[in-house]
C-alpha cells in the first residue's frame, strides 16, 4: 500500500463517523461481564485475537468488495458476497450486529458518497454486511482493496477498545497504546487481505472465532434478562 489513504478511508475509520458503531462492543461487554477482560493485559489479548479472526474476516470481505466496486460488478456478485459472509458468520447475533452497522453506514454513505455502485449494492442487499458496505465505499471513491481492508480491520479493534475505556474506566492513553502496538499486525493483515481481493466470493478465506461466537450469543441472551449497555 504505497498510495496515501483516501479521505473516505479516514472518515470511515473515524470514531465520530455517524454509522452507529458506537453502540457495538464486538463482544467486549460480554467478556467484561464474564470476567474474561478486566485490565489492559486482558484487553490486549482480546484485541489481538479479535483482529486475527473477526478482523481478518472483515478485512478479507472489505478488500473483495472494494475490488468489486471498482469494477462495477453485476448485482449477483453483491448477493454472492453477502451470502458468503453470512456463511462465515455463524451466529445470528453477529450477523445482526454486522447488518445493523452496514445499514447505518449505508445511510451515511448515501448522503456523503452517492454512486451507481452503492445503488446497485443496496438494491439487492438493503441491509448489507458492514465490511461489504465499507469496502464498496472505498472502491467507489478511488480507494484500493488494501485501504478498505485496513479500515475494517482497524474498526474491528477500535470499537471494542473504546468500549473498554467506557466500561472499565481504563486509562485512555494506555488503551490507545495497545491499539498502536497492533499497527504491524494491521498492516500485514490488510496486505494479506488485498491479495485475495480478486478471488471468487466462495473462495475467500474463512477465519473463525468460536469464542467470539459464544460471547455474541451470550450477550444477546443476557440483554433480554438484564441491562446491557451495548447492542453487541
Amino acid at each position: 500500500m504505497t498510495d496515501p489513504p483516501s479521505p473516505a478511508a479516514l472518515i470511515l475509520a473515524d470514531s465520530r463517523f455517524p454509522g452507529g458503531g458506537h453502540v457495538h462492543s464486538g463482544g467486549l461487554e460480554q467478556a467484561v461481564s464474564q470476567g474474561l477482560v478486566s485490565g489492559l493485559d486482558d484487553l490486549a489479548g482480546f484485541l489481538a485475537g479479535r483482529l486475527r479472526t473477526a478482523g481478518r474476516l472483515a478485512a478479507v470481505f472489505a478488500a473483495a468488495a472494494a475490488h468489486a466496486a471498482a469494477r462495477r460488478v453485476r448485482p449477483a456478485h453483491w448477493v454472492a458476497l453477502d451470502a458468503e459472509l453470512d456463511a462465515r458468520t455463524p451466529t445470528p447475533a453477529q450477523r445482526a450486529a454486522s447488518r445493523a452497522q452496514g445499514r447505518g453506514t449505508a445511510r451515511a454513505a448515501l448522503v456523503a458518497w452517492p454512486s451507481p455502485v452503492l445503488a446497485d449494492l443496496l438494491a439487492v442487499t438493503p441491509r448489507p454486511h458492514h465490511a461489504v458496505l465499507v469496502g464498496a465505499v472505498h472502491g467507489s471513491t478511488g480507494g484500493n482493496a488494501g485501504q478498505a481492508a485496513l479500515t475494517t480491520a482497524y474498526l474491528a479493534v477500535s470499537g471494542p477498545a473504546s468500549a473498554a475505556v467506557r466500561l472499565l474506566g481504563l486509562d485512555p492513553f494506555a488503551v490507545n497504546a495497545v491499539l498502536a502496538r497492533l499497527g504491524p499486525a494491521l498492516t500485514e493483515l490488510a496486505a494479506e487481505a488485498a491479495r485475495t481481493a480478486a478471488d471468487r466470493p466462495a473462495d475467500l478465506p474463512a477465519p473463525s472465532s468460536p469464542a467470539l461466537d459464544l460471547l455474541a450469543e451470550a450477550h444477546d441472551r443476557h440483554h433480554q434478562q438484564e441491562v446491557r449497555l451495548f447492542a453487541s
Binding site: P18, G19, G20, V23, S25, A100, G104, L167, A231
Partner: peptide, 21 residues
C-alpha cells in the same frame, strides 16, 4: 428500546443511527 453504548447524548445527537433504526 435502544442501547447507547454508555453515551446517551451521542445516540440522540452525534450518531443517530441506532435511534433511526
Amino acid at each position: 428500546a435502544v442501547r447507547t453504548g454508555c453515551c446517551p447524548h451521542t445516540a440522540i445527537r452525534d450518531d443517530i443511527t441506532a435511534n433511526l433504526d
